Simulated scan of single mutants.
Amino acid sequence: MKLITGNANPNLAADIAKYLDIPLTDTEFRRFADNEIFVRINENVRGEDVFVIQSTSYPANDHLMELLIAMDALKRASAKRITAVIPYFGYARQDRKTDGRTPISAKLVANLVATSGADRVLTMDLHAGQIQGFFDVPTDNLIATPVMERDIRENYGADKVMIVSPDVGGVVRARALAKRLDCDLAIVDKRRPKAGVAEVMNIIGDVQDRACILYDDMCDSGGTLCNAAAALMEQGAKSVSAYVTHGVLSGSAVERIEKSVLKEIVIADTIAPDSNAAKSKAVRVLSVAHVIGEAIRRIANDESISKMFD
């Protein structure tokens, strides 16, 4: 087995390599003067089972091109099997036509990944589970729910919390966590007047005097979670925290969260936290390296991945 990482999240890749007790393969990622990306694999990979670890997070296009070019280099170097390990799959929100003459970019990126040489894809908490069907190669979608469940039990106590979905679309995800914790579920019903603006309309469920935990797959600008938290507090919630797999946290998201009524936001390390998130007392990071590492080990040994979550 060979592990390769681009520049998106080298710390996560190093933790995965530590879990698997194998070194990262020596590679070279650099830019030409005009910012074209160049990749060189400095070790023999002929006949090897290779895993390329790269989230397509900000800057999304640069990290996506690093992934595609690295896999092309591996394919031309006669690697036996190439698995694209994409902890955070960017463009996932563009999974359908939302208006006339608009793209389905998630499908386009899935095609690019397969065309560039990926034989398998391993990702985590896709924005929509059906995106797995966009890939023309076998795709495994891991979940961070067990990691979140363990942390909630340790820090909040399962008998004291109420899981809240920040929108109707995330109910299935939130219900799965609530079922694991054997606790109640509430839903924030919101209407979005335009892209990037979330308006909370109603809370479905009794949150009076409850420690509420918002659970979602990603936090971008933070507007949805902050508005939902404010609405929950107005309905009598005792406290509101948020657990999110992908901490995109673009723009002034960290500052917005710090000024909100949120007690804290807990994110997984699928995206490398920037300096603002890293030093913020309102943001806490959980590692999912052991989950991804175990999935990689099972793929390499042709073992079941679904049994990881039984």
Results as ranks from 00 to 15, higher is better:
residue 137 V to L: 11
residue 19 Y to A: 01
residue 89 F to W: 10
residue 219 C to H: 01
residue 225 L to I: 10
residue 44 N to D: 15
residue 111 N to L: 03
residue 90 G to Q: 00
residue 82 I to A: 11
residue 211 A to H: 15
residue 180 R to S: 14
residue 63 H to C: 03
residue 96 R to F: 12
residue 35 N to V: 11
residue 225 L to P: 01
residue 62 D to K: 06
residue 31 R to D: 08
residue 55 S to C: 05
residue 259 K to L: 11
residue 87 P to E: 03
residue 195 A to W: 05
residue 39 V to P: 06
residue 178 A to M: 08
residue 171 V to Q: 12
residue 81 R to S: 15
residue 211 A to T: 10
residue 92 A to I: 00
residue 45 V to Q: 06
residue 70 A to W: 02
residue 19 Y to I: 00
residue 168 V to P: 03
residue 104 I to F: 09
residue 126 L to T: 04
residue 118 A to R: 12
residue 80 K to P: 02
residue 259 K to V: 05
residue 77 A to I: 08
residue 299 I to N: 07
residue 199 E to I: 11
residue 63 H to A: 02
residue 76 R to A: 02
residue 281 K to P: 03
residue 34 D to W: 10
residue 293 G to R: 00
residue 232 L to I: 07
residue 130 Q to P: 03
residue 191 R to D: 07
residue 43 E to S: 03
residue 268 A to M: 13
residue 67 L to W: 05
residue 23 P to H: 06
residue 161 V to P: 13
residue 201 M to H: 07
residue 67 L to Q: 08
residue 182 D to C: 05
residue 200 V to N: 06
residue 210 R to N: 08
residue 232 L to S: 02
residue 173 R to S: 09
residue 194 K to A: 11
residue 126 L to A: 06
residue 137 V to C: 12
residue 87 P to F: 04
residue 184 D to W: 04
residue 92 A to H: 01
residue 56 T to P: 00
residue 174 A to G: 09
residue 199 E to Q: 15
residue 1 M to P: 12
residue 164 V to F: 12
residue 296 I to F: 01
residue 89 F to V: 05
residue 120 R to M: 13
residue 6 G to E: 12
residue 14 A to T: 13
residue 129 G to I: 03
residue 250 S to W: 03
residue 67 L to M: 14
residue 84 A to P: 07
residue 162 M to E: 11
residue 107 K to A: 13
residue 108 L to N: 09
residue 308 M to P: 00
residue 181 L to P: 04
residue 175 R to A: 14
residue 31 R to Q: 14
residue 26 D to C: 04
residue 309 F to P: 00
residue 6 G to F: 13
residue 89 F to P: 09
residue 171 V to A: 13
residue 29 F to H: 15
residue 10 P to T: 14
residue 186 A to P: 09
residue 55 S to I: 00
residue 250 S to D: 06
residue 215 Y to R: 00
residue 122 L to D: 14
residue 305 I to C: 02
residue 254 V to Y: 08
residue 139 T to S: 10
residue 152 I to D: 13
residue 151 D to A: 11
residue 166 P to C: 12
residue 214 L to A: 05
residue 165 S to M: 10
residue 29 F to Y: 15
residue 180 R to C: 04
residue 223 G to D: 07
residue 179 K to P: 06
residue 99 D to L: 13
residue 214 L to G: 03
residue 29 F to S: 09
residue 188 V to P: 08
residue 148 M to C: 09
residue 234 E to L: 07
residue 310 D to H: 06
residue 209 D to S: 15
residue 104 I to N: 05
residue 159 D to R: 11
residue 214 L to T: 05
residue 3 L to E: 06
residue 189 D to Y: 12
residue 169 G to N: 09
residue 216 D to G: 12
residue 307 K to P: 00
residue 246 H to V: 07
residue 254 V to K: 11
residue 209 D to G: 05
residue 116 S to I: 01
residue 13 A to C: 06
residue 155 N to S: 15
residue 1 M to F: 07
residue 269 D to K: 01
residue 114 A to I: 04
residue 120 R to D: 15
residue 31 R to I: 00
residue 116 S to L: 01
residue 238 K to A: 15
residue 50 V to N: 07
residue 65 M to H: 03
residue 135 F to N: 08
residue 201 M to N: 09
residue 84 A to N: 10
residue 296 I to A: 03
residue 43 E to C: 02
residue 25 T to G: 10
residue 214 L to I: 14
residue 36 E to M: 04
residue 161 V to N: 13
residue 19 Y to C: 01
